[in-house]
Design a protein around this nucleic acid. Sequence first.
DNA 1: TAATGGCGAGAACCGCGGTTCTCAAGGCGG
DNA 2: CCGCCTTGAGAACCGCGGTTCTCGCCATTA
Lengths: 185, 185
Amino acid sequence: MSDPVRDHVVAVADELFYTHGVHVVTMRRVRDTARVPLKRLYEIFPSKDVLLAACLTRRDLTARAAIRQRIDAIEDPVAKALGPFDFLDDWFRQPGFHGCVFAGAFGEAGAAAPIVVTAVRTHKQALRELLTELVAKTGIRDVDAVGAQLAVLFDGAMAIATFTGDTDAALHARRAAQALLDTAA
Amino acid sequence: MSDPVRDHVVAVADELFYTHGVHVVTMRRVRDTARVPLKRLYEIFPSKDVLLAACLTRRDLTARAAIRQRIDAIEDPVAKALGPFDFLDDWFRQPGFHGCVFAGAFGEAGAAAPIVVTAVRTHKQALRELLTELVAKTGIRDVDAVGAQLAVLFDGAMAIATFTGDTDAALHARRAAQALLDTAA
DNA sequence: TAATGGCGAGAACCGCGGTTCTCAAGGCGG
DNA sequence: CCGCCTTGAGAACCGCGGTTCTCGCCATTA
């Protein structure tokens, strides 16, 4: 099942899509960077959309793993639930930050590529579940409601950082999340 | 300065871009729908990007006007500050809701069209100022901080509704905003 | 050694869509 | 009436990029 060539291509394409944007990265460029002939590329991925979806799936996994790693050592449940926002803050301030790939991919592919839409939805859904899980550990009432609210803050910070480049967005979101967790306790 | 043909084209193109997406609406389609020859189209707008930016500017104005109209009759300052989220809720539940054009336009044009990026930023900035202005009228401390937090919630709800189709996003955002305004009072 | 079959490299195909050009119809001044 | 300029309708141009095809190389094998 695990094809090393496939994994390599997905890793390379994911990096390219994230760094330069889905639109400007052509299949030829993926070929050149991954050193894999177009022929084999199309044997593995029937179309660019399928390749993109594979990249988004990969990024969903790596992003969530990175968040979990970031909050792993935190003991206090409230601080742990706020950890994802610290993760965002770190991310936004990284020199190579170029916004959320999922937003870009969605905007470009639109309704024309259901497979991409599905990948985006899965990612957002998984993030919301992750946040809800963290809320549950704080012993707060209305776990689902507060989880959904944190998800709104999380995506809002990402949208603002992506669209306006405002690197303080994560801080605003974190402060709001803190207030919500405090009052809901 | 006010060219009726130009206004007509912008109105038509704006509607098309919003309904079908920037990507799939071609200049030919704008021509056919607006009944304006390509030649004149390109005399008014040197490129599609410029036309798109004009549409985004128009939508920024109409959207903010609609929000102001929605909250105009509300007297209580806190309820008034929550009004924009009710506006979002109404919008999300409209049959023709297709997400935020600005997100789609940004994703597609990307860094390749600075004029589009500028229009998106201006819009987001204006929304944040509108929310901050409403917060100021509640007499709350930390006007700027809470205004920024409401902006995060607003954009977050829009991102979630756009990407996942979850029409309850505005409700989550509204509840969170209410909690923030209550605790900051 | 010679047939063969997979494979890499890159050309070629093809439709699309932004942009520009052609041309004819019609109004208007002389 | 005649030339001229504007303007509309649509064809044509052009590059781009996803996708497919060609061809020659090399390894394997009888």
